[in-house]
Design a protein around this nucleic acid. Sequence first.
DNA 1: GTCTATATAATGATAGAC
DNA 2: GTCTATCATTATATAGAC
Lengths: 186, 186
Amino acid sequence: MARSSDKRERLLDAARTLFHTQGFAQTTLADISAASGVPLGNVYYYFKTKDELVEAVAADHEAQFQQFVEELEAAEPSPKGRLLRYLATIHEQRDSLKSHGCPVGTLCLELAKAGAATAEKADAVLRLKFDWLEAQFRAMGRDDASFLTERLLASLQGSALLANALNDCDIICRNLHWSRQWVEAL
Amino acid sequence: MARSSDKRERLLDAARTLFHTQGFAQTTLADISAASGVPLGNVYYYFKTKDELVEAVAADHEAQFQQFVEELEAAEPSPKGRLLRYLATIHEQRDSLKSHGCPVGTLCLELAKAGAATAEKADAVLRLKFDWLEAQFRAMGRDDASFLTERLLASLQGSALLANALNDCDIICRNLHWSRQWVEAL
DNA sequence: GTCTATATAATGATAGAC
DNA sequence: GTCTATCATTATATAGAC
């Protein structure tokens, strides 16, 4: 019938996963086709170009984070408690972060190097996270909220990179443990 | 004559620069050929494959760091002074770090995602830096030298990534300023 | 050692039947 | 909306003259 199937979502899921695990450049449309079960030629019905696909993936990361924030803010009124819960969710992703880095951070780096116009879409996701974290620090009464956010995000992104290169997940764990105490002491 | 010209070094320089600015996957051998002035077919006389080229680039990063360390250790006997000078050299590279990230860190990420065997060579460079930094902290009498190194390196790598994505070089500067005070207070 | 021409393979994208 | 077949391009790599 005329109603669109779930093919678009399956393509998006496959692309998001493969861009994370293999990188954008290394992932071919044939890979995405195979992983999603959507024939290669049909991919272009949903996404006219590979760039359009990665923009949709970035938008998906953004939507997922916004949904995460909504649920978190509904469940936890205290900004400090929200930050601690945020760190807890990152801890849950530690294995994936160690194996492939941050899905958003590594995508930003790769698209920036490619000189792609799509880099802005990925950067916007990171900025969204930045702004939300900053808002929490500000709600805690810190007027150095921006700087605190820089330190926290840099520490998270950097420890994911180090854990990946040095093949040691504990680097993420130790950093998160330290960050948690740091937030609690603020 | 039979003696090898400087072509190999010109190829290596071009590759190191292009892998940093464009990424490994986005850089074609034609790019390297054009940037170095060495005809495409001749590239293969010096490097049989693209993988061999990136291994040589990683080895070059390693050699450069080792030379930097030698000079630094000769000029500065104090481990704390060495760390502060190390931070100063990073500050000099701030524009490049903001535009393209850390040449070693981003290469590690990209090769890891590509699943390339060459990733180990890049990882070894980062590990070398890790070990040297750790040795300085240890020489300062810190038995938590490894953890301090993790925090410092993660902070440096992460702030380069953030500066790149958020297009703000000051993120690196503020982080370095903070790291300098942190080292001084140890 | 050097370089031109080209083989080979892979990939993004399209045409067009159904 | 779906899918097969294929085009056009690009990239790694090689062959072989000089």
